[in-house]
């Protein structure tokens, strides 16, 4: 082995040692970019822990994840928008629009798809239950005192805040 080969080997070893933190940093980066894009698509309080799980799944499923997240963020920025209603129509139809719907669906259903073998991201933090939380329990969680659930029929228009 000549000196140059030794040098290359040493560099490779150094890089390999550095890899775990590099991966960690990359993961953190994707997570925060994912949360950023998510916050634009879903204008509610979003849990970073749930976001990390969805991001990890997305990373394994979408090779161009980073790029798609950036394009969603840029689309909103181009409109100066922070609400999904103000920029969603500007997301081009096709792969990017489908991905945006997938992200929204993941937050609402807490699952990677509607299939019975889908990956679960969260149960009780799935947003699906929040628009009706004043009237309907999240199943398994207590809702009222004994025999005290005969509350008023709330109008459809009074959306709870979440």
């Amino acid at each position: 082995m000549n000196r140059r080969q030794l040098f290359l080997l040493g560099t490779a070893a150094m890089l390999a040692n550095a890899m775990p933190s590099f991966t960690f940093a990359a993961t953190q980066d994707i997570e925060s970019r994912f949360m950023g894009a998510s916050q634009l698509l879903v204008n509610h309080d979003l849990s970073p822990a749930v976001g990390a799980r969805i991001a990890a799944f997305a990373q394994a499923s979408y090779p161009n994840l980073g790029d798609m997240l950036d394009r969603i963020t840029e689309t909103a920025a181009a409109r100066g928008a922070s609400r999904v209603e103000d920029f969603f129509d500007a997301i081009p139809e096709g792969e990017l629009r489908d991905f945006a719907f997938w992200v929204i669906s993941a937050w609402y259903t807490g699952s990677s798809s509607g299939d019975r073998d889908a990956t679960l991201f969260t149960y009780e933090e799935a947003l699906l239950y929040q628009p009706t939380i004043d009237m309907v329990p999240i199943p398994t969680f207590g809702f009222s005192a004994p025999n005290a659930w005969g509350n008023d029929l709330y109008p459809l228009t009074d959306l709870p805040r979440f």
Partner: peptide, 16 residues
């Protein structure tokens, strides 16, 4: 639907 329209749709469909 997205945004508030989606929330309203979930509320409407669940209730009705």
């Amino acid at each position: 639907k997205v945004g508030r329209a989606l929330d309203e749709e979930i509320r409407r469909l669940t209730a009705t």
